[in-house]
């Protein structure tokens, strides 16, 4: 019995092909599809940053320039993530951090719901302020592991590092955060 293969139309693949040939309309369609994904990926790596939008912009420019190299070996979003990640890390490496601002972290008078939201927001700032004071490599693995939820093995593959190195970076970053959290708790409850 001969099994007839079904030819399925993949609209995303068609858009990728057209965009890689320079079709700006197709690229716009890809952009619309994946802007939230790239935005979140960059936001998680950078935290609050005035250059956030510039980095997203640069990521998409790199995507456009590199589309021809995408061969479909992995999901398009995986490839997209790698591009966004590389651009973000380049940006972080160029950025010079001279001080770490933790002043934003202050207990505020508010009702319990508001308080929880404010505290979560401020703790997020504490996290990124702490990460700002660490190397890009530490920051990346911590975000990938703790925030993105990736496993150490997956991060090792993505970053071309050994699992031991990745694990050591996660551990070191946790220790730093642990110290920061303990200090901030002491400020509230001396």
């Amino acid at each position: 019995m001969t099994q007839q293969a079904k030819v399925q139309f993949d609209p995303e693949a068609a858009l990728i092909e057209a965009a890689s040939a320079g079709d700006m309309s197709a690229f716009r369609a890809l952009y619309d599809l994946h802007l939230p994904f790239v935005t979140r990926a960059v936001a998680r790596l950078l935290g609050r940053s005035p250059e956030f939008e510039d980095v997203v912009q640069e990521a998409f420019i790199q995507v456009f320039r590199s589309l021809g190299s995408y061969r479909g070996e992995c999901a398009f979003t995986t490839w997209l993530y790698r591009v966004a990640r590389n651009v973000s890390i380049d940006h972080l490496r160029k950025r010079r951090i001279t001080t770490v601002e933790l002043d934003a972290w202050r207990p505020l008078a508010a009702d319990s719901d508001e308080w929880a939201k404010l505290e979560a927001r401020d703790l997020c700032r504490v996290l990124y302020a702490t990460l700002d004071a660490m190397s890009v490599e530490h920051r990346e693995v911590f975000v990938l592991h703790e925030v993105e939820g990736m496993k150490l093995r997956e991060i090792a593959e993505l970053t071309n590092e050994s699992i031991n190195t990745v694990a050591a970076r996660v551990r070191r970053t946790r220790e730093r955060l642990q110290a920061v959290l303990e200090n901030t708790m002491r400020e509230i409850d001396p």
Partner: peptide, 10 residues
């Protein structure tokens, strides 16, 4: 709370 807020992204 901190990790949860970061997961939601800024």
């Amino acid at each position: 709370s901190m990790i949860g807020a970061a997961r939601k992204s800024p």
